[in-house]
Nucleic acid binder design. Structure first.
Lengths: 221, 221
DNA sequence: GGTGGTTGAGTTCATTGTGGTCACAGGCGG
DNA sequence: CCGCCTGTGACCACAATGAACTCAACCACC
């Protein structure tokens, strides 16, 4: 369970955000704060994994607060939720390594997608990185459209492939997946590789057979 | 022109990095530092846009230095260049919003690609974001594969071999490595020799057995 | 001590079955 | 009718393999 602290100067807005977060599986709000000072105190007290941070606070600008929060707990993650549209605000937030930057007003789905993406990424960091490729995976994962697929892929087929992957406890090759669903190997491979790029599947190679090794895909829970 | 400060405890390495950066169009090294204190002073003095930061410094761990650097100049960007492969180091760096995380040892091309990507992203931030899509564009990095392996080698197998090497404190022969991973001796040797050529492994010859001497590979920390 | 045989690892190479690409077919909306 | 999108068959490229070959050290015998 990922624990969350909600920070927003507006009491009602904080309440709404709290409701949103609690509706997402795997997330739990452990507290709310309405000012920078309250946020620092709550962080020290509750030790949440993630902070939902509004930038417009009565006592301090949110971006200037992040350093103080990090001083209290260096390992806390921050997701900015604000109406601030200045380029400097976005840049400053990115520079401080925020998990995401969500513009108000937003719907439940917008937040849910970003929270789930954060959870996935959080779980997928290996204990030890061995190659630069591992690092790149951490740096540049699925920030892209979780709901919108790239050109040439359809939602229906994507769902079929995902279902087939979930249905098999062990791994699937592109050819096996194609056979299972009833589509061509090329299409199956395209969707499987898409999921792999998103980090939703794990790819292993099967050696031993003569010929080129086989890529086998496993759904990542 | 993007101005750069190079920070590395090893004087010669700093010099090499300087040479690399100066060879990239649009970048100019304005100074070097060999310790955390020197870095802070140079930052205040030279006001570079970007810092190339090694994490292993004599007076402070690089990740702990970032907060001090940001206190001096909040708008400075940081690109980590280090041999540190611990997950916590990578996570901590990402959490502090580093531009990139490049593993030593690396070639000129690796750095060039990352610098140019940084320059591109830097230039492409709109003055005002109007929609969430604008924000997502800033957050989403231009996906680019780096660290290209030579023909005939695959990333997955390379990672496996690297993992096997790191897992053994002493040395491995090609045959032992092959057995451990489940690939053929020929393949294992190809990857081991690749790493040796990169300088990532140390090679020693073991005599004493009858037959041709055995090449043993040790992962270089 | 020189010399040729033995041994086991390095090296080369054709083979192989999958990975990946490309241009086209069929469908859908305008 | 045209243009765009999604899936496909066909084709080539590619990574790994095992067998055959080469090579460096050891060893035994003269």
């Amino acid at each position: 369970m990922i624990t969350v602290l909600v920070v927003d100067d507006d009491f009602m807005v904080a309440r709404i955000h709290r409701g949103f977060v609690d509706r997402v599986d795997g997330f739990e709000v452990v507290g709310t704060a309405n000012s920078g000072d309250q946020a620092v105190a709550a962080l020290a007290d509750l030790a949440p994994d993630l902070i939902l941070l509004d930038l417009y606070l009565p006592d301090v600008f949110g971006l200037d607060l992040i350093a103080r929060l990090r001083a209290v707990r260096p390992d806390v993650d921050i997701l900015v939720i604000t109406a601030a549209r200045e380029a400097e605000a976005v840049r400053g937030a990115v520079r401080q390594g925020v998990v995401n930057y969500l513009l108000k007003p937003f719907g439940f789905e917008d937040l849910r997608i970003r929270l789930q993406e954060y959870a996935r990424r959080r779980a997928s960091v290996p204990d030890q990185v061995t190659s630069q490729a591992d690092v790149d995976r951490v740096l540049a994962p699925t920030r892209q459209l979780v709901n919108r697929l790239p050109k040439g892929l359809s939602q229906e087929t994507a769902d079929l492939v995902a279902a087939a992957l979930r249905a098999t406890p062990d791994s699937l090759s592109a050819a096996e997946c194609a056979e299972k669903i009833g589509i061509s190997r090329v299409s199956a491979r395209r969707y499987l590789e898409f999921y792999a790029a998103q980090g939703r599947t794990e790819v292993t190679l099967r050696y031993g057979t003569t010929g080129r090794p086989e890529r086998r895909y496993t759904w990542r829970t």
